[in-house]
Simulated assay, not measured.
Amino acid sequence: MRWTLPNTLTALRLLAAPGVAVMFLYFSRPLADWFALLLFISAAVTDWFDGYIARTWSLESKLGAMLDPIADKAMVVIALMVIVGYSSMSPWLVLPATFILFREVFVSGLREFLGDTAGTLKVTKLAKWKTTFQMVAIAVLFAQGVFEHYLAVSVEGVSPEQVSAILSREAEDIHGLVWKEQGMLWAGYLGLTLLWMAAALTLITGWDYFVKAWPHLRDDR
């Protein structure tokens, strides 16, 4: 086993996955949202760097090949769990998150069952795009949480009538409510759009893996 720089980055990304959830245990919002966002983005960036370094410097290893997909799945699953947990349980968020979690469990189960023949389920380019969409979508949704809670802090002590007047541009916006609300709304729309695109790619790649695994699952072989 070689403990190389790419393997170290992958291991750090694996440790960062539960760290995203831990931020919400020890920090109040929106500080927790900021820390989770920065930690998630930093970990996601290492996902590209460790693979690039491994290929460029010929440092690919079995340990890295094993840890890399686990780290990706852990980051996505835990981050989605946190986002859904702090959401209003909107079906627009819960449904794509459910599709993504189901696919990850399903494909992991396929690989475990296939054992030595799991090499038939190699990661495809489309699956890599799926992971990219998932990472970007989750980062944007964390950003939405930042806007949402800065908005909530800004309206403390302000009457609902005055908030409504400010947001409708009928009163002076001395609290910066408009740009905070717009940031929250646009980050929400963009994040959900990207998450649904990621969910679509998730289902497509999951079906592709199932088709490839089917010959090894038939009883008449």
Rank of each mutant, 00 (worst) to 15 (best):
P6D: 08
A198H: 02
S61T: 15
M89A: 13
F142D: 04
A143G: 14
L63N: 09
R218K: 12
I166K: 03
L9A: 08
L192C: 08
W34I: 15
T98W: 04
L195C: 03
A118L: 12
A143Q: 09
M66D: 10
D116F: 11
G51I: 12
Y189T: 09
K180L: 15
D219S: 08
V76F: 05
A213G: 02
L31D: 05
G188H: 07
P215R: 00
T202N: 03
S159E: 05
A36P: 04
V94A: 12
L110W: 07
H149D: 12
R169P: 03
S61D: 11
A213K: 02
T193R: 10
M66G: 06
E60Y: 10
A17Q: 02
A97N: 08
A118N: 13
Q134S: 14
L121M: 08
L25S: 10
V82L: 11
I204G: 00
V45H: 01
K122V: 11
L194S: 03
K125R: 13
Y209C: 01
W129M: 14
L59T: 10
W196K: 09
K130E: 02
W207E: 04
G51F: 10
G176R: 08
A187Y: 04
S87E: 07
F27S: 05
L39H: 06
N7G: 07
A200I: 11
E148A: 15
I78Y: 05
I41Y: 08
L177R: 06
G145Q: 03
A65W: 12
D219L: 13
L67I: 12
A198Q: 01
I174T: 13
L67M: 15
A71M: 10
L93R: 02
K212V: 02
F102N: 03
L151A: 07
R169Y: 10
G51S: 14
A54F: 14
M75S: 06
T8P: 05
A127K: 00
L110A: 04
M197V: 15
R218I: 07
Y150G: 01
A198R: 00
R29S: 03
T8L: 14
F35N: 08
D50K: 11
L185Y: 15
P215Y: 00
T120K: 07
R29N: 02
A32S: 07
A44M: 01
T46P: 06
V22S: 08
T120A: 13
A200P: 01
L192S: 07
L9Y: 07
L101P: 02
T124C: 06
G51Q: 13
E148Q: 15
I41R: 06
A171I: 03
R218P: 00
